[in-house]
Structures are given as C-alpha cells and as structure tokens.
Design a protein around this nucleic acid. Structure first.
Lengths: 183, 183
DNA sequence: TAGATTGTTAATCGATTAACAATC
DNA sequence: TAGATTGTTAATCGATTAACAATC
C-alpha cells in the first residue's frame, strides 16, 4: 500500500486484502499496541515502521551460508535478499578445492573456521545447504557458535535446543502437501 | 518405523514421535477409517499403505519444471524426488539458447510447446522457477493446460482459480518468520 | 454534529484433550 | 481372563467473530 502511494488504511481494507476478518486484524494489532485512530484507521507508514520493529525486520541481519553445492550456488546468486532484511556475510564449504574461491562478492571459507568466524561476527542466522548426512553436525557447530535461526535445505529433521528456530525448505514436502488435492 | 523393522505401533508412540497427543493421532486417523485394533495398535505396513492412498502419495506424479535459471538447475540436479512420489517429466525455458540442451536426462523444450505438452501428458503438477515478472503469465498457461498444483519459487503471489493449489518457496519469507525471535 | 472506525469485551465456533465402553 | 489400546463421546480449551462503547 505504501508503494502504491496510499497513506491510510482500515482493518476492513487490510482484512479484505489478506483474506481474513477485520476483527482479526484489530485483535492481532492491538496485542502489540494501539496503532490506529477511531474514525480514521491506520497510518500506513507508521504501522509499517511499528510492525517492522515488532517483527525485527527493521534492520539487516548477517547470514552465514554453509555448503556450496547446487543449492548453495543458487542461493548466493539469488537477488532477493538485498532490501528484505538479510545479507549473506559468510560462506563456508568443506571442499578444499572450493575454499578460497569467490562466490558473489564473498570468499568461500573452510568449515574449520566456521565457529570462530560466526562467533567473531556475532552472526545469528544461517542457511544450511549441505548434504543430509552432514546437516546435524554442522548445526551443532552453528548453535554452539551462537546461531539462533537456521534455514535448512537438507531433507533432514534437525534437533536443536528450544531457543533455536529452524525452518525447512524441501520441495518434495511442499509437493506432497498438495497431492491430496490431485486426482 | 517400517525402515527400522518395526511391525506395530500405537497412537501413544506415534504421538510421542511427532510431538502431539495420542488422542489427536486417533482422532485424525479415525476421520479416514478404522485402521487399528483395540489392545494391539496399528500395523505399520498397513497404516502406511492406507495413508499413502489417502494422501495420494502412493504413485509417482509427473512434474513440469519451468525456468532453467540457477534455481531450475539446482532443482533438476536435486536427488530427492526419486522415490518420494515425483519425477520431473518435462522442462521448459523461454531462452532459445537453452532450448534443446539436456538437463538431467531431459531435453529443455521451448515454452511455446508447454500448453500442448502438458495437456498431452496429462501433467497436473508444476514447479515454477521463472523470474517474478513472468510467473503469473506462465501460471495462467499452466492452469489452462490442466495443472492443479504449483510449487512457486518466484517471490510473487499468484492468483489462481480455487481448484488450483499453490505452495511458495521463498527463503526470505522463511528467514523473516524466525527474525521475531532474534535479538 | 454525524459518520466512521478503533480497541476490547462477550459470544460463538472449532479444535484438542480426557475419559471410557468396546474389544482385541 | 487381564491388560492394552482403539474409536468415539463429552468436556475443555483456545481462537475467531460479533457487537459496541469510546472517540477521532
């Protein structure tokens, strides 16, 4: 809406755009504060700033990428991170022939240095693009080094402490979600 | 469990493994039929077969892949589809220099042929790896040709008829889901 | 002032859990 | 037969929606 030049919106309009009820919008927003005005609605720029802060997407998070196989390469070359709150700041691989090579504008580092570098930079976010059989041990190292959010491309369930969040990207799971509706 | 050689399980054990209650397991399963026996539990092989049929993952679905950029390449080379119910059967790209090239064991076809080929083969599932600005028009063609499940890698919301399912894979969205928990 | 829309309370709805008769 | 565990009903819990006083 901001990009469309709109200045003010209402719970009604937000609900219609999102396919949920106006009451739900008001309930959810009011959980975090009073962002609107009776009779007027919500100032879009103000609401956006507030929500950005609440969701911690008001800054740029440094991300460590581990594993430079096909997926790792595609992720590095993906243009979608810049401007959406994330920046790949460190890249690691275990293959000595890859270490030292340049990917994007980063140099690939050896995984031996991972714990040290992640700690030194205070990196809290990682993307895991390693083969399934290495995913858990790399995860353990990352968590020990202070990582708290992991985006895992390996088709493996990770076990992590309760304070660490994991999201999974597995195309097969997403396809299976939909197969129930096929015939 | 089947792979571990186990023959029988219970709602209690299933719940513990999945982190949900035994009552929930029984309720959900009973929605589709009576798969267990009092005092004994569930025969794992039988249950697996039944669930496979219910979820339509008891066969192999042909998938059309559209767009052979970085992500398309990584998807084609991904080994995880075989044996999990999906097989890339058709590959399309709009770039004439890519058409005719071989990827995996498939030949890349021109998008002009997409509608015809998808219809002829009765393909119902597609993976969309094209740039955002082309995602909607490619989707329209796919839907017209009979596709009912779309896995979309483009960071764009697709509008489709109610009978068509879409799942989105966008690493930034997944990272943002977790940023609320960072500090 | 009159109309619009918020934030919140109370009512409703749906999902989860507990309990238990049936039965293997 | 005794113990175990299902499928299902009833109770509980939590989430969504409707309603409305407050107020811009």
């Amino acid at each position: 809406m901001a990009n469309e030049g709109q200045k003010v919106t209402s719970s009604k309009e937000l609900g219609e755009r999102l396919g949920i009820s106006a009451a739900q919008i008001r309930k959810d927003l009011s959980h975090f504060g009073e962002f609107g005005k009776q009779g007027t609605g919500y100032q879009i720029a103000f609401l956006r700033t507030k929500l950005g802060k609440i969701l911690r997407v008001d800054r740029e998070w440094a991300v460590a990428l581990v594993g430079m196989g096909d997926i790792g390469h595609a992720v590095v070359r993906y243009q979608g991170f810049a401007g959406r709150g994330f920046r790949i700041a460190l890249i690691f691989d275990s293959d000595p022939t890859k270490v030292g090579q340049v990917a994007g504008d980063m140099t690939i580092m050896a995984v031996d240095r991972m714990a040290k570098e992640v700690k030194a930079r205070g990196v809290q976010v990682a993307m895991l693009c390693v083969p399934g059989q290495h995913a858990q041990s790399v995860t353990n190292t990352l968590v020990d080094a202070g990582v708290r959010s992991i985006l895992n491309y390996a088709p493996v369930n990770l076990s992590v402490p309760a304070a660490v969040r994991v999201q999974y990207i597995d195309p097969v799971i997403e396809l299976q979600r939909m197969s129930y509706f096929l015939h």
